[in-house]
Structures are given as C-alpha cells and as structure tokens.
Amino acid sequence: MRTMKHIKSGALHICLLAIAVIQVFPLFWLLGFSLKDNNEIFGGNIAGLPQNWRFSNYASAFNQANVLQYLLNSILVTAATILITIVLAATAAYAIQRMIWKGRNIAMKGILVGMMVPIHAVLLPLFIVLSKIKLLNTYWALIIPYVAFGLPLAVYLFSSFMVSIPREMEEAAAIDGCNIYKLFFRVMLPLIRPAIATVSIFTFISSWNELMFAVTFINKQEYKTLTVGIMSMVGAYTTKWGEIGAGLMIATVPTVAIYLLLSDQVQNSLVAGAVKG
C-alpha cells in the first residue's frame, strides 16, 4: 500500500516537473541563443548550449541597435506612470473612502466602470488628439494613457485596503491639530504601504509590457520603449538571432528579477487585479 502511494506521488511529481520545464524551458532557450551567432544556430546547434559564449551580442544590441535607449525610455515611462498613478489613486481613494461629501459613491462607481473599457476603443481618438496637441512622440503620449487605464484598479485596491484601517490613528492626529493634508500624507500614506507595493507591481508589469499604445503613439527612435524598440529591431536585424535574443533578454530580465525577488507579492498583485478586473 505504502509503496503504491510512493509510486503514485512520484509519478505526479514527474508530471508537475515536466510542466514546469515546459513553462520555463523556452526562456532558457532564449538565453542560450542570445549568446550564439548565426553560424552556430544555422549550423545545427539550435537547442544546445552555446559553444562560444558571445556576450558581444549584448554589446551590439546595446550600442548599435539602440536597446540601451529603449531600456532607459521604458524605465522612465514606467517609473513616471507608477508614481503618478499612486499619487492620484491614493488621494482619490482617500477622498472617496474617508471624506464626507455627496457623490462619493457615484464617483467610485464611475471610476470602476473604467475598468471595463478596452483600450482599442480609444486608440484612434487619442491618436488624433495627441497629434493635434503635438504630444505624439513624447513620453507623455504613453504616460498619460497608462495612468488613465491604470487608475481604476489602483483606486479600487487602495480604497479596499483603507476600509480595513481603523480610524483611531486619524482621529488622534486630528485632535493633535493636524489638517487634512497631514492626515493623508503623515498618517494614511505610511499605513497603506502594502497596497502601494501591490499597485506598483501591477502598474509596472502592465506598462512595461504594453504594446498597442506604444507602437501607435511613438515612432521616433529617441522615445521608443522596449516593446516598440524591439519590434523595430527585429525588422532591421531579421536574420541576426543572437542580437534579437539579446534584446529580448534585456526586456525580460528586469521583470523576471523583480518576480524572483518578490514572487509572492507579484502573484498576489496580479491575482488581486484579476479578481476585480
């Protein structure tokens, strides 16, 4: 009986491990071919380890293919998006959740409806407006739409987090003579740090990976983010797998690194996003 059980659980683990391999192997393969040159790939060594580790692929992706520029743009756009989203969403959530005014329920519902809107619906109007006010090919052409589409979920996450925070701290601070701004920045903001982490992670992943806005609103080299940049790099380097692989790795490493460091938190953030989204 016991040996049966051992065999069964062994077989189960083998299946689970096989699936784990399927989920991760393509990424290792990517790492592998990012270090090969065409002679090696087209000469038959497709799946194996590189014979010469060509780190020069990374150097040429960074320098000749502009990937460094794309990387910096992605970092800038993503950081600005996260920062603005947090400030706007946390203040709005605070006003809706804690402050006293008519229309707060309607405001909340209106914001949440925004979660259902697919970005396809606004692509052309935004493109036309952005081109009229000469914002195409600027960082703002990405930051503003990313913030707008990130806000509903962020407001939702902040306000459901604030519900669970007891009011005593704010009351004590109010008695000490704090005004509303101090209540928010000195008392509430430190208390919602876990929600800030969740919102940051969620916003990071969605804006770092976004393609449709980026490919439509940006066509100048100086402002391309990694997703668009790599698309144009692929166009120019169609046959150089090594360099393309290096570019793909550079776009992937930051997210994977953050994930490996904070895997539980990243998982929770994305699940929290789904359950309301």
């Binding site: 706007l88 203040t91 005014w101 209106g110 707008a148 589409f149 806000l151 509903p152």
Partner: peptide, 25 residues
C-alpha cells in the same frame, strides 16, 4: 473630513484624466 477644497484637489485629477482619456474618446 468635509474640507471641500481638499476633496476637489484629491478627486478631480483622477476624474478629469479618466474623462478625457477613457470616457470621451
């Protein structure tokens, strides 16, 4: 908590950006 100016300052940017970027388009 009923500070009208603070409420406006806290809520309006969010509502405005969503109106302009999400709803009107």
């Amino acid at each position: 908590l009923s500070n009208k100016k603070a409420i406006t300052l806290f809520v309006c940017p969010t509502i405005l950006i969503m109106l302009v970027i999400v709803v009107v388009p």
